[in-house]
Amino acid sequence: MTSIGASTPSPSRSGRASRGRRCTTPFTTMRQARLEIFQWLTYYNTTRRHSALNYLSPAEFEQRHQRERRITLAA
C-alpha cells in the first residue's frame, strides 16, 4: 500500500521544473520580452543539442546532412 501522493512525480524526477527560462522577475517592457524570447529561440533552434538529432545541434545536423547529400549527389 502506498501513501497518498507517493506516485506523484516530483519536479526533480520529471525534469519539467528544470527546463526553460527561470522567470524570477517579470519583463518590464514588451520589447524586453520579445528580445529574450528571440534569443532563446535562436539558441534552441541553432545551438541546443537535440536528442532527436542524435545529440547534435540543429546547425551541426544540417551541416552534416548537406555534406552527406553532396557526397551522395557526386557519386
Rank of each mutant, 00 (worst) to 15 (best):
F27D: 14
Q63K: 10
L41N: 12
S51E: 01
G5V: 04
T29P: 00
L35F: 15
R69G: 09
R22Y: 09
R69V: 11
G15Y: 03
E68W: 06
L56M: 03
A6P: 01
T8K: 07
Q63I: 09
G5C: 02
T25A: 12
L73S: 13
Q39K: 11
Q66T: 11
R34N: 12
C23V: 09
R48Q: 13
T28W: 07
R49E: 11
A59W: 08
I4V: 11
Q63V: 06
R48H: 13
Q32I: 04
R64M: 05
S10L: 08
T46V: 06
G20K: 03
M1E: 13
A52H: 00
F61N: 01
F38Y: 15
S18L: 02
I71M: 15
R34C: 15
R49L: 10
T42R: 13
S12I: 06
A6K: 02
L53H: 00
W40T: 07
L41Y: 06
T47Q: 15
T25L: 13
A52F: 02
A17D: 09
Q39D: 13
L53T: 02
R70I: 04
E62S: 06
A6Y: 00
Y43R: 09
A52L: 01
R13W: 05
E60I: 00
W40R: 10
N45P: 05
S51G: 03
Y55P: 02
N54Y: 00
M30R: 07
L73D: 06
T24D: 08
Q63W: 09
Q63L: 12
E62D: 11
R64F: 09
H50S: 02
N45V: 06
R31G: 07
C23H: 06
T28N: 08
P58I: 01
A74Q: 12
T24S: 07
L73G: 06
I71R: 11
R34L: 12
T47Y: 09
W40A: 15
C23R: 12
S7V: 05
R67K: 14
A59F: 11
S18N: 05
S12K: 05
M1S: 10
R70G: 05
Y43K: 05
N54D: 03
T29L: 02
S18C: 02
R19E: 14
A52D: 00
A52P: 00
R16L: 08
Y44L: 12
R69I: 11
T46I: 05
R67V: 14
L56Q: 04
R67L: 11
S10Y: 05
T72H: 14
A75L: 09
N54F: 04
S12C: 04
T24N: 10
S12N: 11
R69H: 15
Y43C: 08
S10E: 13
E60R: 01
L35C: 10
L53W: 00
R31P: 04
W40Y: 15
S57C: 08
P26Q: 10
R49N: 07
F61H: 02
G5D: 03
H50E: 01
C23M: 07
T29H: 01
E36W: 05
R64Q: 10
Q32H: 08
T28P: 02
Y44H: 13
S3G: 11
